[in-house]
């Protein structure tokens, strides 16, 4: 298969995904985003890309570092307080941020004629709202409406297996603290804050499935509008969009 795009941070999951995709696709487009709201250490992703290029060939990977701040403004921050009162959970920040990234990724795929899109979602971190099955299912529909197949190549690989395999392949693993590898990927301080009660007290995040699904479907409308406007603003044909299966 020719080309695939992958949301890439350089952490364990997305690095494993990139390595696996490099075995199946001729070229892997690695997409790294910062949202302009407390993201730091962005250079770590580029270092990881160099490791991947050294192992699988420089021509196999392209890397793009882009900002989703303006998209984040539309999807998340514009109606933030109102949305919090409506959904009564802070997941709106992380899920909205991820939707902004998916909108940007869809644009990237459409501009470059890429029909396969992946991310490093993992069943080992299903406490993260964007990695819940319901979230991934609806994201899959979002991409499918543009004729793009979205998939999650490492979802069912246990974290411990990924860590062992990356170590075997000679990747840097950073410092392991509480089962997480620190120092190998950018840091999102807002995300870290959101999961503080989970990390400190083992308090499960309030990610009620129907609530999350309602939010995604609500914000997907904005994400689609962002994609449309992107192409209109550049005087280019707006991609045709099939109706979403459950729309």
């Amino acid at each position: 298969m020719p080309e695939v795009a992958l949301m890439f941070s350089g952490g364990v999951d997305s690095t494993m995904a990139a390595a696996l995709l490099a075995e199946r696709f001729e070229r892997v487009h690695l997409l790294t985003y910062h949202n302009g709201h407390g993201t730091a250490w962005m250079g770590r992703s580029a270092k990881r890309v160099e490791e991947l290029r050294a192992r699988y060939g420089a021509e196999r990977f392209t890397h793009t570092l882009d900002s989703t701040q303006s998209f984040m403004q539309e999807v998340v921050t514009r109606d933030l307080v109102e949305n919090y009162r409506e959904y009564r959970s802070g997941f709106i920040w992380c899920m909205g941020c991820k939707l902004a990234m998916h909108a940007r990724s869809a644009i990237y795929c459409l501009e470059n004629g890429i029909r396969h899109m992946a991310d490093g979602s993992s069943g080992s971190t299903q406490e993260m709202v964007e990695q819940m099955v319901v979230s991934l299912s609806l994201i899959r529909l979002f991409y499918a409406s543009y004729g793009i197949e979205f998939f999650t190549p490492v979802y069912d690989i246990p974290r411990e297996d990924e860590q062992a395999e990356l170590r075997r392949r000679g990747f840097r693993m950073g410092v392991q603290i509480l089962g997480r590898n620190v120092g190998i990927q950018p840091q999102c301080y807002a995300g870290l804050t959101y999961y503080a009660p989970y990390l400190l007290f083992h308090k499960a995040p309030d990610h009620e499935e129907a609530n999350v699904a309602r939010f995604i479907r609500d914000k997907s409308t904005i994400a689609h509008a962002i994609v449309t406007r992107w192409f209109e603003a550049r005087g280019r044909a707006v991609p045709e969009r099939a109706a979403e299966a459950a729309g």
Binding site: L138, Y155, E165, A213, R217, A246
Partner: peptide
Amino acid sequence: AFGSDWGDDTLLPEALASDELAVTAAAREH
């Protein structure tokens, strides 16, 4: 999944490989 012969069906968790779940989730929400 780490072997060189991993097939297309290992790309997706079973649940995500099917549109049925997505439709089901959305339908439930509706």
